[in-house]
Amino acid sequence: MEWITSLFNGKVLAMLGAALAVLLAGTGSAKGLGIVGEMAAGLITEDSSKFGQALLLQALPGTQGIYGLLTAFVILNRIGVVGGAAVELTTATGFLFFVSALPIAIVGYFSAISQGRAAAAGIGIIAKHPEDLAKGIMFAAMVETYAVLALLASILMLFGINI
């Protein structure tokens, strides 16, 4: 039963949290970017001068992946894998790190996809009214609010863990 003990080792759990944050948020962002990218490519075949605007809209669902990476980095930093001093973690502390990663991992995944959809619809706006780019951006940005809040929750939880 050694593998169970090593699986529930504090460090493994914390790393699992970090991995999840990158994995889920990153996958969501990739999907979101893909959704907008497809629409944007369609627009460019009609009017290549709108590349810059389309790219701006495409960049929007990319932030969740970055938030995930950021959360992972804070975890790795706190448990001493990257920079900082290596620390021994109890299983309970490891779980705390794991749980802290959940908000950004899960909300990041879903919000990135929804934001991708909103941004893809925004491509439709700039196809007809390029001057209304900012409005398209705003609609997509409304979705991002929840990714930001999830990131905030994750970060606050992480900073709150005493080692």
């Binding site: 970055i66 938030y67 990476l69 950021l70 980095f73 920079g83 905030l152």
Partner: peptide, 22 residues
């Protein structure tokens, strides 16, 4: 509460910059 994004985005910039340096 919506203004908590001020903190979150500020931290995001700072932490990513730290990652780059590290």
């Amino acid at each position: 509460l919506s203004y908590s994004r001020l903190l979150a985005l500020g931290l995001a910039t700072g932490v990513i910059a730290t990652v780059v340096n590290t």
